[in-house]
């Protein structure tokens, strides 16, 4: 885990993980550890862990859909300014088409899209950016504290 203290009022932690479903528990452990260190409100922590895990799961399921045995790594960076939490994801998978990233219609009874719905329910903003090299995708989630 790397701690970055570019701005002394900001706390930031970043870690990378192999892109596969077995890494999701490690993503959750990292998130819980960081939230404890940043002293994030306990009532909010598990919701944030869920949003982070769902976003990481989307990278495994969608950005690397055709590459289940990839050795690529994805990175998660959590930054706290005191007033806002920013969670950034970086991956080198298939470029995300933002127009296709939406939860499905409410009257469709299939569970697909539920993870994206959870992220939208928990976080205040979701932005997809083109990643700076070597990254392809950069998803940024924010939550006011």
């Amino acid at each position: 885990m790397n701690t970055e203290v570019a701005d002394p009022t900001n706390l930031s932690e970043k870690k990378d993980f192999l892109v596969r479903s077995s890494s999701l528990k490690d993503v959750r452990s990292f998130s819980r550890e960081v939230f404890e260190k940043f002293k994030i409100d306990e009532d909010l922590r598990e919701e944030l862990v869920l949003a982070i895990a769902e976003a990481a799961q989307n990278i495994v399921k969608h950005a690397y859909k055709d590459f289940p045995d990839t050795q690529d790594r994805m990175a998660v960076r959590i930054t706290c300014t005191g007033k806002e939490l920013e969670i950034a994801f970086f991956d080198k998978g298939k470029p995300v088409e933002e127009s296709k990233v939406k939860h499905r219609a409410i009257d469709d009874v299939k569970p697909g899209g539920l993870g994206t719905f959870f992220i939208q329910e928990i976080m205040d903003s979701i932005k997809f950016k083109e990643g700076d090299k070597p990254w392809i995708n950069n998803l940024v989630l924010t939550k006011k504290l």
Partner: peptide, 16 residues
């Protein structure tokens, strides 16, 4: 202790 959308999907699929 923890369940995400994949767990919910299993419950929905099982019910159907």
């Amino acid at each position: 202790q923890y369940m995400d959308s994949s767990g919910i999907s299993v419950i929905v699929e099982s019910s159907k």
